[in-house]
C-alpha cells in the first residue's frame, strides 16, 4: 500500500482513540461470556468468589432429567428444521442465482428474507395465532408445529451462504459436462452439487445454530412437553440462579462457537 513511501510521521489512517474503543468493544463483548464460562468450573456456588476448579456442576447438569429431555427436544427440532430448511433454501438458491433477471426476482428475495425483516415477537404471536386455528380445525397436536415454525426461519439463514457460494461459481464446468452429454440430473449430481456443497454445509450449520438458540418463537409455539434447552434455561433463570445453569449455558455456547468457527473456516478455505 501507500505506507511504503509515506513521507510523514503521522499515520493518515489513524484516528485518536479509535483502537482503544475497538479493544474496549471486544472486551465488552467477551468479558461477560468469559466470566460465565470461568465460574461454571468453580467448585463454589458463588459466581464471584473463585475457590477451586471442579466439574461438579457439569456432572449435576448431565444428571438432570429436565436438562436431558430439553436437550433431546432441542436437537430433534433443530435437526428437522435444518434438514427441511436447508433443502428448501438450496432449491430456492439454485432458482434465484446465475440466471438473467426474471420477473418477480425482487419479490422472491423479499419473501425469502421475510422472516428476517419482521420482529421475532410479531412472527411468534402470528404463528401462534395460525397454529391455534389449525389445531382447532384439525385437532392435530404435537411437536410438528414447533418443527415447522423453526423450518420457516431457518430458510433465510441457510439461503444466505448457499446463494453466496453459487454466485461465486461460474457456469463453465456445468456447460462442459452438458457438452459431454451429461443429462441435467447428472450435471447436477456430479458437478453442481459437489461444487456448492461447502455452501450447503455452511447454510445447514447456520440454520442449526439459529434453531438451537431460538427463544421467542419457541416460547410462544411450544406445547407442554416440548421444552427446548433455551426455554428450560429461561425458566430456571427466572426461578433463581444455579451453577448448573452456568454449566449447561457453557455447553450450549461451546456448541454454537464450534459450529460457527467451522462455518468461518469453510468460508476461509474458499478464498
Amino acid at each position: 500500500m501507500a505506507d511504503a513511501r509515506r513521507p510523514r510521521t503521522m499515520d493518515l489512517r489513524k484516528q485518536p482513540g479509535f483502537n482503544q474503543i475497538a479493544w474496549l468493544c471486544l472486551i465488552f463483548l467477551y468479558a461477560p461470556i468469559v466470566v460465565l464460562i470461568v465460574f461454571s468450573f468453580n467448585d463454589n456456588r458463588s459466581v464471584v468468589r473463585w475457590t477451586e476448579f471442579s466439574l461438579r456442576w457439569y456432572a449435576a447438569a448431565l444428571d438432570n432429567q429436565g436438562i436431558r429431555n430439553a436437550t433431546i427436544v432441542s436437537f430433534k427440532v433443530a435437526s428437522v428444521a435444518t434438514v427441511f430448511g436447508t433443502i428448501l433454501a438450496t432449491m430456492a438458491a439454485l432458482a434465484t442465482t446465475r440466471t438473467a433477471p426474471f420477473r418477480g426476482q425482487t419479490l422472491s428475495y423479499a419473501i425469502i428474507n421475510q422472516p428476517l425483516m419482521v420482529p421475532e415477537i410479531v412472527t411468534a404471536v402470528s404463528t401462534l395465532a395460525l397454529f391455534a386455528i389449525i389445531k382447532q380445525l384439525t385437532g392435530l397436536t404435537g411437536i410438528g408445529y414447533l418443527m415447522l415454525a423453526h423450518t420457516v426461519f431457518c430458510i433465510p439463514f441457510a439461503y444466505m451462504p448457499i446463494r453466496a457460494r453459487l454466485e461465486d461459481m461460474s457456469l463453465t464446468l456445468e456447460q462442459a459436462a452438458a457438452d459431454l452429454y451429461a443429462t441435467p440430473f447428472q450435471v447436477f449430481r456430479r458437478v453442481t452439487l459437489p461444487m456448492m456443497s461447502p455452501g450447503i454445509v455452511a447454510g445447514a450449520m447456520l440454520a442449526f445454530v439459529v434453531s438451537l438458540d431460538d427463544v421467542i418463537i419457541t416460547l410462544m409455539v411450544a406445547g407442554p412437553g416440548e421444552t427446548t434447552l433455551p426455554i428450560y434455561i429461561l425458566g430456571q433463570i427466572r426461578r433463581g440462579i444455579t451453577p448448573e445453569i452456568n454449566a449447561v449455558s457453557t455447553l450450549l455456547l461451546g456448541l454454537s462457537v464450534i459450529l460457527v468457527t467451522a462455518f468461518f473456516l469453510i468460508g476461509q478455505r474458499r478464498r
Binding site: 463483548l29 467477551y30 461477560p32 466470566v35 465460574f39 438458540d213 433455551p230 455456547l253
Partner: peptide
C-alpha cells in the same frame, strides 16, 4: 477481527443476556 465481532451474534442471546445479568446484579462481579 470480523470473526471475533460476529461470533457473539451467533451464540445464544439468552445466555449472553444471562451473562450480563450475572455481572451487574447486586451480588455480581
Amino acid at each position: 477481527w470480523l470473526f471475533l465481532i460476529t461470533l457473539p451474534f451467533w451464540t445464544n442471546l439468552l445466555i449472553r443476556t444471562y451473562a450480563i445479568l450475572l455481572i451487574i446484579r447486586d451480588e455480581g462481579l
